[in-house]
């Protein structure tokens, strides 16, 4: 049951990100993008010259935003853990081709990935359980050092 709900959420997210982004494509861009210095071609050449990075490393390069193994489930940044392989690949291809949007974060992130890298990540994430990595109340016992106790500000 959870699984099908999860799939629905993912599909909804895909639908939303594509439609929302499509609706604002190229509208009144007032500042141009910046990119470089390595070209995309050179990026792909370098990627092909060396063995593919491990799926674990590729997948956890996403951890900074999506959480460990892509399993942060409760913020506006959607999770990836447990995502269906095909859905993952389709989404990444949509981002790469700018069909989704020119400027949402995932477009930038997806662009320089090779299709082998994308497949490896898809395989990896599809095998991870779609459950929250972070334990409840994980940081509830935190104390700030004495100097950092901020006084209530007078209104």
């Amino acid at each position: 049951m959870f699984n099908s709900l999860y799939k629905k959420i993912i599909l909804l997210f895909l639908f939303l990100s594509i439609t929302l982004a499509w609706s604002q494509q190229d509208i009144n861009i007032s500042i141009q993008a910046q990119q470089g210095p390595m070209t995309l071609e050179k990026n792909f050449k370098l990627a092909d010259r060396y063995p593919i990075p491990s799926a674990w490393l590729l997948a956890n390069a996403c951890a900074g935003c999506h959480g460990t193994d892509g399993a942060e489930m409760d913020t506006v940044i959607p999770p990836i853990a447990g995502m269906d392989k095909k859905v993952f690949i389709e989404m990444m291809k949509a981002y790469q081709s700018e069909k989704a949007s020119k400027s949402i974060v995932m477009t930038l992130v997806a662009k320089p990935l090779t299709s082998n890298e994308i497949s490896a990540m898809a395989e990896y994430f599809s095998q991870i359980k779609a459950s929250e990595w972070t334990q409840k109340n994980w940081n509830k016992d935190v104390k700030v050092p004495n100097w950092a106790e901020e006084k209530k500000e007078a209104k």
Binding site: L20, Q24, I27, N28, I29, S30, I31, Q32, A33, Q34, Q35, G36, P37, M38, T39, L40, K42, N43, L46, K102, S103, I104, V105, T107, L108, K111, P112
Partner: peptide, 19 residues
Amino acid sequence: EARHYIPGVDKNGFQQKML
């Protein structure tokens, strides 16, 4: 070897709100 990408700004502000 480095490659970076910084998208521009759209006038209606949608993108910036979301980000």
